[in-house]
Write a protein that binds this DNA or RNA. Structure first.
Lengths: 344, 344
DNA sequence: AGGTCGGTTGGAACCGCTTCCACATGCTCT
DNA sequence: AGAGCATGTGGAAGCGGTTCCAACCGACCT
């Protein structure tokens, strides 16, 4: 018969072996001052001998904190989300907190993820990435006193890390206008679902503003919307490039979409940047590979700053906790090889 | 003064309000049979009225299970790891388990991640991605009876999901040989660190085998090693392409490295595929964008299959639990536009 | 010598759940 | 009628920590 491995040692095993009370062991574990060096040594010896490791479940219950930070993120939808999570993970890695990841592709998962956390005993804090919590959820989160930071999403109830999307759109369009383009198309996200917020919409506004201030009329047939996928964007771009008077430049609201535009150009035999300029948004890694000119937003930093802010909140920094603290990260155009002067 | 929100309701609050004992509430919560319909209704009413949600910390402690699955992964090092995690997340999403993510960039983090889990009370199971646990850790994991599945890494102690790297290397080289190439270089990973396993080494073996069976001599100056980054690979490729007799094809052990080779070719003004063929490995999303010919391995599936296997183990399927159960996923060459016949 | 006082220490109570055991109830079966 | 038996139910014990309180100790005071 197989001998079961011994159950993991508990704090009272340690206490028994060291010949002290459980309280003393706990004090040693938590580095409290009032323990005589000799006693401490005996306890440490026992801990070592029994290979004792405290139970985190028991600690959570007793302390009413979990040492876990929940991250809710539409993980699948975009490579940029991954980059943000990387920023978060790197900060949490050097903290005492662990990272619980919730992907929320579908709507009911989103619901589920929120419900999971809003009791407040699963995690000590929450990072919501590219996601706006619905109002009833906001209430529950606040009732549970769960510190919460939004990354890439605004909400008056929570501090957030965002970028200036309007300005991003403006910069992209201005870059193209500066090169001499006048016929500039825009491919944005499809109208936002209730949970997403309208970052693409803001980029559209920036685009329109830049055009306006250059005295260029916005042509409705040049402004299109579709999902983030590059396949959809490719289809839209093919449409656009078959227009009787086709645009000489396309600004896409994400790199994924911009890559779709590049594919479309390749399919139609249109040379980039000689015959068509393309600008993306995000500056994901692929953009560098493919030489895509794009509007860089600090994805990694959005995650790391969000995590840092949350950690500060958890340490009771009420200053940033309170109202609508908003940190705005800079955007900039990264010029690579998909933009140039218009043909002719 | 601000009124604190009431503490979350506990099971005994519910019991009190429903006028029953805590045991009965627990039975209702867990859908046990022996509860009179009338009683059940009263309890449900109380639960609803108090917006009661059970404490998962308390449940974990009492049940000795956490409903969490730990995923340990070198998250930052490669886009392929992300794809595997996606596969894992999608399977766990439709299970009762939550996903705790541990990134392990540096060696001490790796240590940390393992220690965290090996007591067995943080998670009910573990998925190790592209990581081979050191022997002492294997012991602890087994002692803690923590079900554990390896994804993209072999170890006799645990079931695993892998691919046939030798065959992958062979297929890549055979594809190039089939096109008529004779001067085929190979860029692999640098010698594995103790935690990684030698997948690149196996790919080298496949490459050598294919060459051998075509009667082509392996030239040492054509076989190079470097880290996974495309920058490093680019440097190596530039070296390679400046050789007096330069290769007409390069097989890289990862797509990231293959992209570095493409960059090198661009820098040197060497046309692909007319003057140089390039084959990668993995088939990450970028490969499709850039038209890279590559050896596809099912990244997403490796994650999803690993997660499914682990779930089966957790349900007590001893069959797959036991010995060195190994699931081998297929590899195949995906021909795109970076390979063609050799020049001349 | 007796009283204070600060530093150590043991252990009970508690965190919120599950589970088991004892007990009550209303039947059926001799 | 009394034993036997499901069926429902209450509540104590236990999961493994933390924390608080009381007790103990020797040193130091008067």
């Amino acid at each position: 018969m197989e001998s079961l491995p011994p159950a993991p040692a508990t704090i009272s095993d340690v206490a028994a072996r060291a010949g002290v009370g459980v309280g003393t062991v706990s004090r040693v574990l938590n580095g409290r001052a009032n323990v005589r060096p000799l006693t401490r040594a005996r306890v440490l010896e026992a801990i070592d001998a029994l290979a004792y490791r405290p139970s985190s479940a028991a600690r959570s219950l007793s302390l009413r904190r979990t040492h876990v930070i929940g991250v809710v993120v539409p993980f699948f939808t975009s490579p940029s989300a991954v980059e943000r999570v990387r920023g978060i993970a790197s900060v949490l890695a050097r903290s005492q907190y662990d990272l619980m990841l919730f992907d929320v592709e579908s709507e009911d998962r989103r619901e589920h993820a929120f419900r999971l956390f809003d009791r407040g005993d699963r995690s000590d804090g929450l990072l919501l990435v590219s996601l706006v919590p619905p109002d009833d959820e906001v209430e529950r989160l606040q009732a549970a006193r769960l510190p919460c930071v939004l990354v890439d999403a605004p909400h008056p109830a929570f501090p957030s890390i965002v970028i200036d999307d309007v300005r991003g759109g403006e910069l992209a369009a201005a870059h193209l206008i500066g090169l001499g383009h006048r016929r500039i198309a825009f491919i944005g996200d499809k109208p936002p679902d209730p949970f997403r917020f309208a970052s693409s919409r803001d980029r559209t506004r920036g685009y329109e503003r830049a055009l306006a201030s250059a005295g260029i009329e916005v042509r409705p047939e040049y402004v299109r919307e579709g999902t983030q996928s590059h396949q959809v964007a490719r289809g839209i771009a093919i449409d656009l490039l078959r227009l009787p008077q086709r645009p000489t430049a396309v600004f896409a609201a994400s790199d994924a979409q911009a890559l779709g535009v590049l594919e479309a150009a390749r399919i139609l035999g249109i040379r980039v940047p000689e015959e068509l300029s393309v600008v993306g948004f995000d500056d994901v890694e692929v953009a560098a590979y493919t030489g895509l000119t794009t509007v860089r937003q600090p994805l990694y930093e959005s995650g790391s700053h969000g995590a840092e802010l949350l950690l500060r909140l958890l340490e009771g920094d009420a200053a940033s906790s309170g109202g609508p603290y908003v940190e705005q990260l800079p955007v900039e155009v990264v010029v690579r090889s998909t933009t140039g002067p218009p043909p002719g």
